[in-house]
């Protein structure tokens, strides 16, 4: 089975058709995705801004970190699941979309980021209570850059050129020279 066949199969499912061709599902999913970005993004911003010492510096980092966690998780789940559904609607187009792949690369880098900074920052938040290390601040800046990049490239997916050939490739409807 080729990738193309798998993607085309996905596009043929009822779920995919319902989102791709339907009136409300696509914008509603998009709206929930946006609200989840506001939610998850907000908590993430708060967390990173705390690491940078700009938001709630008088509160202990670990205190805030543990309280943010459940919200981050819920937000993340909603963002990713709505994202998956949106992707399920048009996998063929996304496969050819440069912005989609850049976004996914950034997403992978987010995973790398979590792993790289686990020991020094996120694994033991109490370490930051005495004072936020410069390594932690670097982690925060990179986190903000990665997620901002994902928001930008995510926005650009819906509007990039990749699926629309400039010269449309369609078999001619008519075969007579006079056009009828």
């Amino acid at each position: 089975m080729t990738i193309q066949q798998i993607l085309e199969w996905i596009e043929s499912t009822h779920l995919s058709l319902a989102i791709r061709e339907g009136g409300l599902p696509y914008p509603v999913l998009g709206g929930v995705h946006l609200l989840a970005i506001a939610w998850f993004g907000g908590v993430l911003l708060a967390s990173d801004l705390r690491l940078l010492g700009w938001l709630m510096p008088q509160r202990r980092f670990s205190d805030l970190w543990y309280q943010f966690q459940p919200w981050k998780r819920i937000g993340f789940v909603v963002v990713v699941s709505t994202g998956l559904l949106l992707a399920w609607a048009e996998p063929v187009r996304l496969w050819g979309s440069p912005n989609f792949w850049i976004k996914m690369t950034l997403f992978a880098l987010v995973g790398v980021h979590a792993w790289v900074f686990h020991a020094s920052v996120y694994g033991q938040p109490e370490k930051m209570d005495a004072g936020v290390t410069s390594r932690a601040k670097l982690a925060a800046v990179l986190s903000l850059a990665l997620w901002s990049g994902m928001v930008l490239t995510g926005r650009l997916i819906a509007f990039d050129d990749s699926f629309e050939p400039k010269i449309p490739d369609v078999t001619p409807v008519t075969s007579h020279a006079d056009g009828h």
């Binding site: 908590v43 911003l45 708060a46």
Partner: peptide, 24 residues
């Protein structure tokens, strides 16, 4: 335009996100 729009999204993550934290 898309950069401005992305800033719009980051802006509402900041504003609506922090508002939602207090609301919850």
């Amino acid at each position: 335009f898309p950069v401005v729009q992305t800033l719009h999204f980051i802006g509402f993550a900041l504003s609506i996100g922090t508002i939602a934290i207090v609301d919850f």
